[in-house]
Design a protein around this nucleic acid. Structure first.
Lengths: 142, 142
DNA sequence: TTACATGTAATCATGATAGTTACAGGTAAC
DNA sequence: GTTACCTGTAACTATCATGATTACATGTAA
């Protein structure tokens, strides 16, 4: 099990948008850097657009960020590409036996624990901004 | 995407082992409470046995815990059933373009972030013991 | 020997992912 | 207005993990 690489691809894409001249940002250009298909890039672009993280004009290259780098957290990107639904990182077996005292209560007992664990993970993503990623990349490229 | 329900099933199973008379603990009994197949239960039993969380005798009902309830963390159970590999909760796209400065460095930048996020989640599981789950269940059944 | 248990291989349906092709429609330079 | 290039999106595919299930070899003890 892994969380879909859509998330890492989206971070990669937004980093490219942040660091490249607007006129070169086409789905073809992004696809070459990510090393995948332009259609897949456009699908993820649609998700980022729907989440209002980027602006895109149909027919014209040059996506732009709608906010400054310091205002975009990794959590927002993660939510934009819908790799994990809210409170559903952990799957719980559906229909334990209600005739069994443990079966009847196991879901209610486990669920808050799972939500706490998922939240701890998401809080880390919430505190890391796209600007942090861009800074790291810039240091490595210099 | 969800983490396999093997994890919640394993917690359910161990709770049953903790709270039921040893002689009734068969894969059939567990399967009825979880509401699934005895074969699936036996597969998970094999994982828990391999992780040395339970003892099972071939041919004889009555699995028992190898440690006290306060010594078994949810992290151990989670690791036992191998729902997430170490440092691989998040998938990263495999082959970004090395000819692109961002493509060349994106993995090294993202990976430690993902590991930090995953660790935060796992640290929550590490701090919750099977005894906590059992206590909660007992409160709900009374 | 019988009844019941575990251990495990094999098979299957389902759903998500990632890759790909194809094409409709938008935009702007010439 | 035609050309070249772009986005938007539907449709199809291969692959893989999950969970359910069947089947059977093997172990245990009354």
């Amino acid at each position: 099990m892994t969380i879909s690489s859509r998330f890492s691809v989206a971070i990669h894409m937004l980093t490219l948008v942040a660091l490249s001249p607007p006129e070169v940002i086409s789905s073809d250009f992004l696809a070459r850097s990510v090393n995948t298909n332009p259609a897949l890039i456009r699908k993820i672009m649609a998700m980022l657009k729907k989440a209002e993280l980027i602006q895109v004009k149909p027919g014209v290259a040059g996506a732009t960020l709608t906010k400054s780098l310091t205002e975009i957290s990794l959590l927002e990107i993660y939510q934009a590409v819908a790799v994990v639904e809210p409170n559903e990182l952990f799957g719980i077996h559906d229909q334990p036996n209600p005739a069994c005292p443990i079966g009847r209560n196991i879901q209610a007992t486990i669920e808050p624990i799972f939500i706490t664990a998922q939240s701890a993970m998401e809080r880390v993503l919430e505190q890391i901004m796209l600007s942090d990623v861009v800074k790291d990349i810039e240091q490595l490229t210099n």
